[in-house]
Amino acid sequence: MSEALSFRGRPVRESKRNGRKVRYVADQLVVKLKSRFLNDSKAQRKVVEVLPRKSNLARGFDETGMAIINLPKSADLFQVARKLEKQDEVQFAEPNFVDSGS
């Protein structure tokens, strides 16, 4: 893995997935709630409760149930994502993947 790039001031990490080079914001997680939990403050709280200390919401839950979470440097992004995806209310939790103009 390398960490040479940045996106919007945040570090970008590069790795391989299914033989494809992927880049993602190293300390950011995208979380989306299932549609039946939109605007459900209890479900939102449940997400926040499992986050590592010093995490913060870069973007709070919107009307589609999506939030962007900044994690502390020490956190394992994929481990946190797996933990969140075990919650019934969460549709998915994944890195904020980086795209490029082609």
């Binding site: 494809r20 992927v22 880049r23 999506m66 998915f92």
Partner: peptide
């Protein structure tokens, strides 16, 4: 005119 890896958010 861009792209990257597959993702749940992109597909949504």
């Amino acid at each position: 005119s861009g792209g990257g890896p597959d993702s749940n958010l992109k597909k949504t």
